[in-house]
Amino acid sequence: MDLTVDIDAAYVPSEEIVAREIQGEFIIVPITSGIGDLEDDIFSLNETARSVWSKLDGKKNIKEVIADLQIEFEDSAADIENDVMGLVTELLRRRMLVEAKRG
């Protein structure tokens, strides 16, 4: 699996997850072999990750997502880029995110 993040590509949540905001928590349940398994794998995103996740809509590429976050947050551009790239890599590794089809 290619975990290289393409800064010019847009990404979307994978079809193999269910994500919901419940009681203040943003919960992600992975779907494995047709089963949403809460026994072993259930994840919640922290606030930083939630801010990034909400912008991963398959329309904006990573460059645009970083630019949006620079307006919202006071961190340096390098720190924001570092966090976004780190999170997107992690989400790709966990198969929670996929690259959106271009065009």
Partner: peptide, 23 residues
């Protein structure tokens, strides 16, 4: 303005033991 927090290791709150989901 808010500050982004944490590195990649802190993006996820590992669950079950940390998250008590109501019915």
């Amino acid at each position: 303005m808010l500050k982004l927090k944490g590195g990649s290791s802190e993006f996820f709150v590992r669950k079950e033991e940390d998250l008590r989901l109501s019915s």
